[in-house]
Design a protein around this nucleic acid. Structure first.
Length: 645
RNA sequence: GCCCACGUGGCUCAGGGGUAGAGCACCUCCUUGGUAAGGAGGGGGUCAUCGGUUCGAAUCCGAUCGUGGGCUCCA
């Protein structure tokens, strides 16, 4: 008989232990101390979640996760899934549960085969039942079973969905069940020790879903919920949700008179004058960067013969997202992307390697037919513009051109003060065009470019476009939500399809590489995100109204108008509130409109040639001489910074 | 596209088979007021659209359009 092999564990405090292989994290926790064991909800081995009851087969960095820490979330929510399914079964024994899942946020979900949608009243009943289950505090058990045993259990329960799920588990993988009380589910874990450790729960909404997420499959009923170790954490989460709702651009946009929608053009925003100011300033900013970086702006047609779209491949791959029209027995399509028109411009002349790289920027209006259920506010629309550009270059130039684009992207994100930028490289997908050698070179070029800048990134296999790999930039906004904005994509396909060429130093013809690049992504979508990021309080340089003059009474209207005129003459966007109201009322109005600077003028100011500055933060800056005010506001707006007032 | 919910004056919402309500906003008048709502009066809605049931529909039923939450997809 041989003694079990020892494995080596290191703990967060730097200490380490040798334990026999097959020891559970719970046993380790118990050995450290009973209080730790009692508070433990799960474990992490080398950063990966592990159930407390799973025998360890290898050593590594072990961390015991305790209730109330952020790391407890996945364990708590995964366990809450089971409590949810248990509660539904207790209330409706005929309900069949399919599978639960967590998304990347604090939500989890569970799908059921149920004859009708769940109502809000159902959710309340289920939530109450879950609380009872939590109070019962049954321990979670982890049970390893054979495939046959698992199949027998679910067959007896009449669970055909589970049998399909079971069949999807690869041969040779350990099959585990988790049980608490009378409830059993096929599950990989990990779970908390006892139901009571799921401290605070809330069901959020119900919706339909499809079995395995495929719309050809049976329709199931899904319930979303969230759970935390403590009521305090739950309350903080619900508060964050409320904050996100308050910042919703679909609410703020119309309120601030930025844009609206009309049923006659579904999912197509109408920008009002104030919204158009911001919209155009965003474009002006990108245009400035384009010019500085050698991009030449082009203007291209909106409607083009379908032949173009056959050539580009859009007819074959993108037709269901396009608008068409026919005139004089000729078929046209409204452009959903700019790249084909840029290829046409490139092909207008004989290009030499000396001409490359050629960089075309385009803010052209694009139209995409999005399915009716997927549109949303400004973030998913049918009519929009991108801060688009395409670079035609040689293989050798790819790296430098990628870096140029990355540099601009970072400059932009700095300007908008996004606290975090994450980068991912999408590598070759299953379905792709081009040779492996081309992909090797392209993927290497992207990585090398980022490495050269010392930028951290994640590699996302299979995430590339069918025509080439891409870099994606994701930012976090002011309340921690992640958005994908910019993208840099390599394309070997489009130049091929359009037969694009250049004459090399060797006198032979070569095929250029095409780089697609966008920084804001779509201007519409970016504006939506920016509204939520800033809660509608745009920085000075973007504010539709930068300052509003507030006369204390009608007696000072004349002076107020002079101040307004002087600021306006200096190029500032300024208004005057000449309403027959008290100062407090006018301040409130300006505040609600999120105007950055309120300029109060009354007797003292009129006499001294000043204006009393109040910020929208509520801060009172006192009197400032009008010429100084103008100089500081102009300077700050030009530099896209806050004014030093 | 599919499932569910919703659609009442510019906005937020109440009402609910017998012929439309409130607050805010808007207009007029009074008040001329120093850092988040001064007072009084007034105008404004074919209750999303179309059809059905009914003596009678904003209210019940159906369809359509739109919006929202999901599925799926993506800038």
């Amino acid at each position: 008989m041989t003694a079990p092999a020892q494995i080596h564990l290191t703990l967060p405090d730097g200490s380490s232990r040798e334990v026999p292989q097959g020891t559970t994290p719970l046993a380790v926790a118990t050995a450290i101390g009973p209080r730790l064991a009692a508070a433990a909800v799960g474990a992490e081995l080398d950063g990966e979640t592990v159930d407390l009851r799973t025998p360890l087969t290898r050593g590594g960095a072990l961390r015991i996760v305790t209730a109330g820490t952020p790391e407890a979330g996945p364990f708590v929510r995964h366990s809450a899934e089971h409590l949810l399914a248990d509660a539904v079964r207790r209330l409706w024994p005929e309900a069949e549960y399919d599978a639960g899942r967590q998304d990347h946020s604090e939500k989890y979900q569970y799908d059921f085969r149920f004859p009708r949608p769940f109502t809000p009243e159902d959710l309340e009943r289920i939530e109450a039942e879950m609380r009872r289950i939590i109070a019962e505090d049954a321990p979670f058990e982890r049970i390893e079973v054979s495939r046959e045993e698992a199949a027998r259990i679910f067959r007896e329960m009449g669970f055909t969905l589970k049998l399909e799920r079971l069949a999807d588990i690869p041969e040779g993988e350990t099959i585990t069940l988790y049980r608490h009380g009378a409830f059993t589910d096929l599950c990989r874990g990990p779970h908390v020790q006892r139901a009571g450790q799921v401290g605070a729960i809330k069901l959020l909404e119900a919706s339909g879903s499809y079995f395995k997420g495929d719309e050809r499959n049976e329709r199931l009923q899904r319930i979303y919920g969230t759970a935390f170790s403590s009521e305090r954490e739950l309350a903080a989460y619900l508060e964050a949700l409320a904050e996100a709702r308050a910042r919703d651009h679909r609410k703020l946009g119309p309120e601030l008179d930025l844009f609206s929608f009309d049923p006659l053009a579904p999912a197509s925003p109408f920008f009002h004058p104030k919204g158009a100011v911001v919209y155009n300033l965003l474009i002006d900013y990108v245009r400035e960067l384009n010019t500085r970086n050698g991009y030449g702006e082009v203007v291209t047609p909106q409607i083009l013969d379908v032949e173009l779209w056959h050539t580009s491949g859009h007819w074959a791959n993108y037709r269901e997202n396009m608008f068409f029209t026919e005139l004089d027995e000729r078929q046209y399509a409204v452009k959903p992307m700019n790249c084909p028109t840029h290829c046409l411009i490139y092909a207008k002349g004989l290009r030499s390697y000396r001409d490359l790289p050629i960089r075309y920027a385009d803010f052209g209006r694009l139209h995409r037919y999005e399915r009716s259920g997927v549109t949303s506010g400004l973030t998913r629309v049918r009519s929009f513009a991108q801060d688009d550009a395409h670079v035609f270059c040689t293989d050798e130039q790819v790296e430098a051109e990628v870096l140029r684009a990355v540099g601009i992207i970072f400059e932009i994100y700095r300007t908008f003060e996004f606290p975090e930028v994450a980068i991912g490289i999408g590598l070759r997908p299953e379905n792709r065009v081009g040779t492996d050698a081309q992909w090797d070179a392209a993927e290497r070029a992207l990585q090398r470019a980022l490495d050269r800048q010392g930028l951290a990134y994640t590699l996302n296999p299979g995430d590339g476009a069918f025509y080439g790999p891409k870099i994606d930039f994701r930012i976090k906004d002011a309340i921690g939500r992640e958005w994908q904005l910019g993208t840099v994509q390599l394309d070997y396909q489009m130049p091929e399809r359009f037969g694009l060429e250049y004459v090399g130093a060797d006198g032979a013809t070569h095929r250029p590489v095409m780089i697609h690049r966008a920084m804001l992504g779509s201007v519409e979508r970016f504006l939506g995100i920016l509204i939520e990021h800033t809660a509608g309080a745009f920085p000075l340089w973007l504010a539709p109204v930068q300052a509003v003059v507030l006369p204390v009474s009608e007696r000072f209207l004349d002076y107020g108008q002079r101040v307004r005129d002087e600021l306006a003459a200096a190029g500032l966007r300024v208004e005057i509130d000449d309403g027959n109201e008290k100062l407090g009322y006018k301040i409130r109005q300006a505040q609600l409109r999120k105007v950055p600077y309120m300029l109060v003028v009354g007797e003292r100011e009129a006499a001294a040639g000043t204006a009393a500055v109040r910020l929208r933060s509520g801060e009172d800056r006192g009197p400032v001489a009008v010429p100084e005010l103008i100089a500081k506001l102009r300077e700050a707006a030009a530099a896209r910074r806050v004014a030093e007032l």
